[in-house]
Amino acid sequence: MAYTKDEILELLQEVKDPEIPVLSLVDLGVITDVDITEAGHVTVQMTPTFSGCPAMEYMKQEVEQSLERHGIRSHTVKMSFDKPWDSNKISERGRKALQEYGLAPPPKYDLILDLDILDYATCPNCHSTNTTMRSPFGPTLCRSLHYCNDCRQMFEQFKPL
């Protein structure tokens, strides 16, 4: 059967970020476009979150396997910087999933990254804004380390980029 672009985006919801298993690649915003030719060839465009992210090749393979599972044999998955990723591209559903997972979603910003916004992370556990950034580098390239002065817990934030 032939799929529409929206149907393909919906079926790709099953492909999750390998390091944040509640967040789909579609909601993460790394799938930038889906193109279907009249002959039924499907091209999925992807872009990395951070260019040094070691999981990108794995994510690409997962997308290919998902397409195969749904009977889409004729496909190309392309990785490029044509539409570069930024953290505003994480969907509302994605932000909610991050929050529930215990990871503070990145604050939305006007794309002129003023690093002061890093200091205003909201604690995902108690929702306090009385928090301190401990390091802009965390367990993966896309996370920073913070401390909540109210509930006294360390937490991580998905970095704004």
Binding site: F50, S51, G52, F81, P136, F137, G138, P139, L141, L145
Partner: peptide, 20 residues
Amino acid sequence: LEEDIAFSSMAQDKIGHSLA
């Protein structure tokens, strides 16, 4: 520990940048 992680993360970024 934070500095260990920071320099390791920057290493990963820089090697990713060189790859680009």
